[in-house]
Design a protein around this nucleic acid. Structure first.
Lengths: 160, 160
DNA sequence: GGGAACCTACTCGGATACCATGTGTCCGAGTAACAGAGG
DNA sequence: CCTCTGTTACTCGGACACATGGTATCCGAGTAGGTTCCC
């Protein structure tokens, strides 16, 4: 079980676009070059972000992507859901009802599977922390630890 | 990103063995039959549990598996690690250092990647809740909601 | 000189291959129980 | 009746295929900007 690499890319791209934030879109080519990522595949991931409403895409020459809403309104939870989808990581297949479970009266299954409940509880904790962290938070931390990055990003995406 | 099905199987098997707990091993054949699972593949997963020290395997006729330690000493975290491995779900590839990142002075990377830090924080919350739940806890909850299951399990695995 | 039409270059977007990992299966090594012969 | 030995049946364990989803790529539809021609 490993998270899609696209999540990492998406987070960094959103971060980069938060640094630009002058309304000017940035093309996939620039974004891919700035992190040495395969351009076409990055584009595919960005499409997922557009579909999720995190990015806006501008077609045509001088087109590209820009944030669809302020960075402090985009959580890591949004990013993960946009790339990975809304399905839970642990998916209960109700094997308790199979085999010997078929001999148990149906009323015993009125409550949710206890294994699933416990797994779900852990996943909720994960999602809660993800939802509490915004791109703006990460941006602030990055600038605190490495003030140089903001300028480098703006220079990389500037029109020159 | 979906968790291995083996995790669900492992949890239920450990639960079943917690209900037997008379020291008598239960064979893969019985366990697989009791949940209608493919026997050979279940065996493969159980081997992982043995390697992780959660189960003991007894070879030979009348052999099988039994818990290596009490159910209240086996957490869901142990189960997940046994099947999925110890690697983090989100694996940072340090793309911040690539492309435009190469122009940034090395001292800026003294601190960990902020994206990774946030992801790691969420994952820690997940692991913490997993580690707080034991097989014994799940067993208690299942018996509370469906008292019939314990007897059915014992009957399914008994020597008759 | 101003404006409109055309052309070009660049962008996103989806359709299309490739590959790694999870899923599923098979067969062999090894062991415990049983049966039978011998004492 | 007890003990030893050979056989048998059953178990785990690892090596071997298959399928699904993540990874990577290519090409077409569409748009903005620049250019050229005409008025």
């Amino acid at each position: 079980m490993r998270m899609n690499q696209g999540v990492e890319w998406a987070a960094h791209v959103l971060l980069s676009l938060a640094w630009v934030d002058d309304g000017e879109p940035v093309s996939t080519a620039r974004l891919a070059a700035s992190y040495e990522l395969p351009q076409a595949y990055l584009n595919k991931q960005l499409q997922a972000l557009v579909k999720a409403g995190l990015l806006e895409s501008l077609p045509g020459a001088r087109g590209g992507f820009r944030l669809a809403r302020p960075a402090d309104k985009i959580t890591l939870m949004d990013v993960v859901v946009a790339i990975e989808g809304p399905e839970p990581v642990f998916q209960c297949t109700e094997i308790r009802k199979q085999g010997m479970g078929a001999n148990i009266p149906a009323r015993s299954f009125r409550y949710a599977c206890a294994v699933n409940t416990s797994m779900h509880r852990a996943e909720l904790a994960w999602r809660k922390v993800l939802a509490a962290q915004t791109i703006a938070d990460i941006k602030a931390e990055a600038e605190l630890h490495a003030p140089a990055v903001a300028g480098v990003a703006r220079r990389a995406y500037g029109r020159d």
